[in-house]
């Protein structure tokens, strides 16, 4: 029988050294809500588990030059309680807070959600819409990548051997900006997104001056849908603009037919969610709050 080593990293450098030493059989343990489940199911069999929850930088939220830096292993519940982050990035926070249930929220992290590289991960479309960057550290030093370039396929990331995700950076926010995330699940809870859509808008009066759209569960990786953003920018979110953006979302879809949804359904829902999420983001930018959905 193979033995599993459990190590607690004291700092980021330590974590990178442990990862490199594990020779490809190392796995970072954040909340463990994916990793432990996969180990139990037999789809993951790491040689070394490296716990990063004792590294302060990886479990805290910091303000940076107008933006935010969220430690990759910060539990979702902690993120949900950060007043200022919630006010500035309500869409990102609601996406992270949709993960699992109360119990899962106490452990699950945005870093884990991203590194697990599921196309249906809830936080990722919102992070893509937000224009988040991934802060990576490894044997070769530090580097940054836009979040939409981080995953390369289902279960695959662009992390190199020994590299870990340290944090996620959210940019400074112009006035009149807000965001929203919506997912479609057949039930109301404890389900996996059939489609997920994040929309981030900056409004000047009634007009959209900047937009980003992230779309999940409709392709091997979460998509940045630039054509949808283009259709929104310059508009006042009139029906025609929303319709055009919805069409762009549907056109960007490269989904599969599976037990969770048909191609037809996913393609259609991508457009439906775009319209609804854009409306919520606009309302929020105008100071109208939306909570339950």
């Amino acid at each position: 029988m193979t033995e599993i080593q459990y190590k607690v990293a004291k700092n980021i450098k330590d974590a990178c050294i442990l990862m490199a030493a594990a020779d490809g059989k190392g796995r970072i343990l954040a909340g463990g809500t994916d990793l432990l489940v996969q180990m139990k199911a037999g789809t993951q069999a790491p040689g070394t588990i490296i716990d990063v929850k004792k590294i302060p930088e990886m479990v805290t939220i910091a303000k940076t030059k107008g933006g935010f830096r969220i430690g990759a292993a910060t539990p979702a519940a902690v993120i949900g309680e950060h007043e200022e982050l919630r006010k500035t990035w309500p869409g990102v926070v609601e996406a992270i807070n949709l993960i699992g249930s109360k119990q899962i929220q106490g452990r699950a992290s945005p870093g884990g959600n991203l590194c697990n590289a599921s196309p249906a991960a809830d936080s990722v479309p919102a992070l893509v819409a937000a224009g988040a960057t991934v802060n990576i550290q490894g044997p070769g030093g530090k580097r940054q990548v836009p979040v939409e370039q981080f995953c390369t396929g289902p279960g695959r990331t662009s992390l190199q051997k020994g590299e870990i995700v340290v944090s996620l950076s959210l940019p400074a926010r112009p006035k009149g900006s807000s965001d929203a995330y919506l997912r479609l699940i057949p039930r109301t809870e404890m389900d996996i997104a059939v489609v997920g859509c994040g929309v981030s808008l900056t409004m000047k009066g009634d007009t959209v001056v900047a937009a980003r759209v992230g779309l999940g569960a409709v392709a091997p990786t979460v998509l940045l849908v630039e054509d949808a953003a283009k259709a929104l920018v310059g508009s006042q979110l009139e029906d025609e603009a929303l319709e055009a953006a919805a069409k762009a979302c549907s056109a960007a879809c490269r989904p599969i037919d599976d037990k969770r949804g048909t191609i037809r359904y996913r393609t259609k829902i991508a457009g439906v969610l775009l319209k609804r999420a854009a409306a919520i983001a606009r309302d929020r930018a105008n100071g109208i709050s939306h909570t339950a959905h």
Binding site: P186, R187, T188, E189, M190, D191
Partner: peptide
Amino acid sequence: YRMPVASD
């Protein structure tokens, strides 16, 4: 296999 959850 989607049985209803309480919030449904």
